[in-house]
Protein backbone atom coordinates (compact mmCIF):
# COMPACT_ATOMS: atom_id res chain seq x y z
CA UNK A 1 0.00 0.00 0.00
CA UNK A 2 1.23 3.48 -0.78
CA UNK A 3 1.81 6.19 1.79
CA UNK A 4 -1.43 8.19 2.23
CA UNK A 5 -1.09 11.67 0.83
CA UNK A 6 -4.09 13.56 2.15
CA UNK A 7 -6.52 13.50 5.05
CA UNK A 8 -9.36 11.90 3.11
CA UNK A 9 -7.10 9.04 2.02
CA UNK A 10 -5.50 8.71 5.45
CA UNK A 11 -8.96 8.20 6.93
CA UNK A 12 -9.73 5.45 4.42
CA UNK A 13 -6.39 3.72 4.99
CA UNK A 14 -7.02 3.72 8.75
CA UNK A 15 -10.57 2.46 8.27
CA UNK A 16 -9.14 -0.40 6.20
CA UNK A 17 -6.73 -1.24 9.03
CA UNK A 18 -9.61 -1.30 11.53
CA UNK A 19 -11.63 -3.52 9.19
CA UNK A 20 -9.13 -6.30 9.82
CA UNK A 21 -10.37 -6.67 13.37
CA UNK A 22 -13.99 -5.48 13.36
CA UNK A 23 -16.94 -5.03 11.05
CA UNK A 24 -17.70 -1.75 9.33
CA UNK A 25 -20.64 -1.14 11.69
CA UNK A 26 -18.30 -1.40 14.67
CA UNK A 27 -15.92 1.28 13.39
CA UNK A 28 -17.09 4.47 15.07
CA UNK A 29 -16.01 7.91 13.89
CA UNK A 30 -14.48 8.30 17.36
CA UNK A 31 -12.28 5.21 16.99
CA UNK A 32 -11.40 6.19 13.46
CA UNK A 33 -10.37 9.68 14.57
CA UNK A 34 -8.11 8.20 17.24
CA UNK A 35 -6.55 5.82 14.73
CA UNK A 36 -5.76 8.61 12.26
CA UNK A 37 -4.80 11.10 14.98
CA UNK A 38 -7.27 13.80 13.93
CA UNK A 39 -10.50 15.18 15.33
CA UNK A 40 -13.85 13.51 14.85
CA UNK A 41 -15.07 16.75 13.30
CA UNK A 42 -12.50 16.46 10.50
CA UNK A 43 -13.88 13.05 9.60
CA UNK A 44 -17.42 14.40 9.50
CA UNK A 45 -16.22 17.16 7.20
CA UNK A 46 -14.79 14.60 4.76
CA UNK A 47 -17.56 12.02 5.15
CA UNK A 48 -20.80 13.60 6.39
CA UNK A 49 -22.58 10.25 6.77
CA UNK A 50 -21.52 6.63 7.17
CA UNK A 51 -22.87 6.00 3.68
CA UNK A 52 -20.34 8.48 2.29
CA UNK A 53 -17.57 6.76 4.24
CA UNK A 54 -18.68 3.32 3.05
CA UNK A 55 -18.79 4.37 -0.60
CA UNK A 56 -15.37 6.04 -0.48
CA UNK A 57 -13.84 3.14 1.45
CA UNK A 58 -15.14 0.62 -1.08
CA UNK A 59 -13.69 2.60 -3.98
CA UNK A 60 -10.33 2.90 -2.24
CA UNK A 61 -10.23 -0.82 -1.39
CA UNK A 62 -11.20 -1.72 -4.94
CA UNK A 63 -8.33 0.32 -6.37
CA UNK A 64 -5.80 -0.75 -3.76
CA UNK A 65 -6.60 -4.42 -3.18
CA UNK A 66 -8.72 -5.65 -6.06
CA UNK A 67 -7.37 -4.10 -9.27
CA UNK A 68 -9.25 -5.60 -12.20
CA UNK A 69 -7.04 -7.54 -14.60
CA UNK A 70 -7.49 -6.02 -18.06
CA UNK A 71 -9.54 -8.07 -20.53
CA UNK A 72 -10.68 -7.74 -24.13
CA UNK A 73 -11.88 -11.20 -25.09
CA UNK A 74 -14.60 -13.23 -23.43
CA UNK A 75 -12.16 -15.85 -22.17
CA UNK A 76 -9.91 -13.16 -20.66
CA UNK A 77 -13.01 -11.75 -18.99
CA UNK A 78 -13.85 -15.11 -17.40
CA UNK A 79 -10.24 -15.48 -16.23
CA UNK A 80 -10.31 -11.96 -14.76
CA UNK A 81 -13.50 -12.74 -12.84
CA UNK A 82 -11.96 -15.93 -11.43
CA UNK A 83 -8.93 -13.98 -10.28
CA UNK A 84 -11.19 -11.41 -8.66
CA UNK A 85 -13.27 -13.98 -6.79
CA UNK A 86 -10.10 -15.61 -5.48
CA UNK A 87 -8.85 -12.20 -4.32
CA UNK A 88 -12.21 -11.61 -2.59
CA UNK A 89 -11.88 -14.95 -0.83
CA UNK A 90 -8.42 -14.02 0.42
CA UNK A 91 -9.72 -10.76 1.95
CA UNK A 92 -13.40 -11.35 2.69
CA UNK A 93 -13.86 -8.37 5.02
CA UNK A 94 -12.76 -6.05 2.23
CA UNK A 95 -14.89 -7.77 -0.39
CA UNK A 96 -18.00 -7.49 1.79
CA UNK A 97 -17.44 -3.74 2.04
CA UNK A 98 -17.46 -3.63 -1.75
CA UNK A 99 -20.63 -5.71 -1.99
CA UNK A 100 -22.34 -3.59 0.60
CA UNK A 101 -21.32 -0.28 -0.93
CA UNK A 102 -22.67 -1.38 -4.30
CA UNK A 103 -26.08 -1.94 -2.67
CA UNK A 104 -26.58 1.40 -0.93
CA UNK A 105 -28.49 4.30 -2.33
CA UNK A 106 -25.78 6.26 -4.18
CA UNK A 107 -24.52 9.31 -2.28
CA UNK A 108 -23.21 11.02 -5.39
CA UNK A 109 -23.97 10.72 -9.08
CA UNK A 110 -23.68 7.00 -9.69
CA UNK A 111 -20.81 6.29 -12.02
CA UNK A 112 -20.77 2.87 -13.65
CA UNK A 113 -17.98 0.72 -12.23
CA UNK A 114 -14.88 0.18 -14.33
CA UNK A 115 -15.79 -3.46 -14.89
CA UNK A 116 -19.19 -2.44 -16.30
CA UNK A 117 -17.54 -0.29 -18.95
CA UNK A 118 -15.03 -3.02 -19.70
CA UNK A 119 -17.84 -5.55 -20.22
CA UNK A 120 -19.63 -3.17 -22.58
CA UNK A 121 -16.42 -2.54 -24.51
CA UNK A 122 -15.82 -6.30 -24.73
CA UNK A 123 -19.31 -6.84 -26.20
CA UNK A 124 -18.75 -4.05 -28.72
CA UNK A 125 -15.85 -6.08 -30.06
CA UNK A 126 -17.25 -9.58 -29.54
CA UNK A 127 -20.73 -8.93 -30.91
CA UNK A 128 -20.80 -5.74 -33.00
CA UNK A 129 -23.95 -6.78 -34.85
CA UNK A 130 -26.00 -7.69 -31.79
CA UNK A 131 -29.13 -5.54 -31.34
CA UNK A 132 -29.23 -3.06 -28.51
CA UNK A 133 -31.69 -4.82 -26.23
CA UNK A 134 -29.97 -8.18 -26.37
CA UNK A 135 -26.60 -6.53 -25.88
CA UNK A 136 -27.93 -4.84 -22.77
CA UNK A 137 -29.40 -8.11 -21.52
CA UNK A 138 -26.06 -9.85 -21.94
CA UNK A 139 -24.10 -6.96 -20.41
CA UNK A 140 -26.33 -6.69 -17.33
CA UNK A 141 -26.23 -10.43 -16.70
CA UNK A 142 -22.44 -10.65 -17.06
CA UNK A 143 -21.97 -7.58 -14.87
CA UNK A 144 -24.22 -8.99 -12.16
CA UNK A 145 -22.76 -12.52 -12.17
CA UNK A 146 -19.22 -11.10 -11.94
CA UNK A 147 -20.07 -8.72 -9.09
CA UNK A 148 -18.97 -8.61 -5.47
CA UNK A 149 -22.65 -9.19 -4.67
CA UNK A 150 -22.56 -12.56 -6.46
CA UNK A 151 -19.48 -13.58 -4.49
CA UNK A 152 -21.01 -12.33 -1.22
CA UNK A 153 -24.33 -14.10 -1.75
CA UNK A 154 -22.73 -17.41 -2.67
CA UNK A 155 -20.32 -17.22 0.21
CA UNK A 156 -22.87 -16.30 2.89
CA UNK A 157 -26.05 -17.83 1.50
CA UNK A 158 -24.54 -21.02 0.04
CA UNK A 159 -21.28 -21.48 2.03
CA UNK A 160 -19.19 -21.73 -1.14
CA UNK A 161 -15.45 -21.17 -1.45
CA UNK A 162 -13.67 -19.36 -4.29
CA UNK A 163 -13.32 -22.42 -6.53
CA UNK A 164 -17.00 -23.28 -6.17
CA UNK A 165 -18.02 -19.68 -6.78
CA UNK A 166 -15.88 -19.58 -9.94
CA UNK A 167 -17.58 -22.78 -11.10
CA UNK A 168 -21.02 -21.29 -10.39
CA UNK A 169 -20.01 -18.18 -12.31
CA UNK A 170 -18.97 -20.24 -15.36
CA UNK A 171 -22.24 -22.14 -15.28
CA UNK A 172 -24.31 -18.94 -14.93
CA UNK A 173 -22.38 -16.93 -17.53
CA UNK A 174 -22.19 -19.82 -20.01
CA UNK A 175 -25.81 -19.76 -21.22
CA UNK A 176 -25.69 -15.95 -21.33
CA UNK A 177 -22.59 -16.00 -23.54
CA UNK A 178 -24.23 -18.68 -25.65
CA UNK A 179 -26.73 -16.01 -26.74
CA UNK A 180 -24.01 -14.07 -28.54
CA UNK A 181 -24.07 -14.53 -32.33
CA UNK A 182 -22.30 -17.82 -33.07
CA UNK A 183 -19.81 -16.35 -35.53
CA UNK A 184 -18.33 -13.99 -32.97
CA UNK A 185 -18.59 -16.05 -29.82
CA UNK A 186 -15.37 -17.18 -28.25
CA UNK A 187 -15.64 -20.42 -26.42
CA UNK A 188 -16.14 -19.68 -22.72
CA UNK A 189 -14.62 -23.04 -21.84
CA UNK A 190 -11.15 -21.77 -22.74
CA UNK A 191 -11.14 -19.80 -19.51
CA UNK A 192 -11.55 -22.90 -17.39
CA UNK A 193 -8.58 -23.86 -15.34
CA UNK A 194 -9.87 -27.17 -14.15
CA UNK A 195 -8.23 -30.06 -15.98
CA UNK A 196 -11.59 -31.80 -16.43
CA UNK A 197 -14.21 -29.20 -17.21
CA UNK A 198 -17.60 -30.46 -16.08
CA UNK A 199 -20.17 -31.37 -18.65
CA UNK A 200 -21.39 -28.09 -20.09
CA UNK A 201 -24.37 -26.95 -18.09
CA UNK A 202 -25.60 -24.91 -20.99
CA UNK A 203 -25.68 -27.55 -23.71
CA UNK A 204 -27.99 -26.44 -26.47
CA UNK A 205 -31.27 -28.33 -26.40
Amino acid sequence: MEEPVDTATAILASAAVLLRERSFDDISYRALADEVGISERTIYRQYPTRAHLLAALATWIEQTCFPLPPFVTVSDFCAAVHERFRAFDAQPAYAFVGARASAISPTLDPEPAYITRAIEAMLDVAAPTLNRRDRRRVATALCYFSSAMFWARLRTGFDLDAAEICDAFDRAAGPVLAKLPATTRSRPTTARETPNPPVTAWAEP
Binding site: M149, R153, G157, F158, E164, A168, R171, A172, V199
Partner: peptide, 13 residues
Protein backbone atom coordinates in the same frame (compact mmCIF):
# COMPACT_ATOMS: atom_id res chain seq x y z
CA UNK B 1 -22.58 -28.76 -8.87
CA UNK B 2 -25.07 -28.04 -11.64
CA UNK B 3 -28.00 -28.05 -9.23
CA UNK B 4 -26.17 -25.69 -6.91
CA UNK B 5 -25.21 -23.34 -9.73
CA UNK B 6 -28.76 -23.08 -11.07
CA UNK B 7 -30.24 -22.43 -7.63
CA UNK B 8 -27.54 -19.87 -6.82
CA UNK B 9 -27.95 -18.02 -10.13
CA UNK B 10 -31.74 -17.88 -9.79
CA UNK B 11 -31.55 -16.82 -6.13
CA UNK B 12 -29.11 -14.10 -7.14
CA UNK B 13 -31.39 -12.85 -9.91
Amino acid sequence: AQRRAIVAALAHL
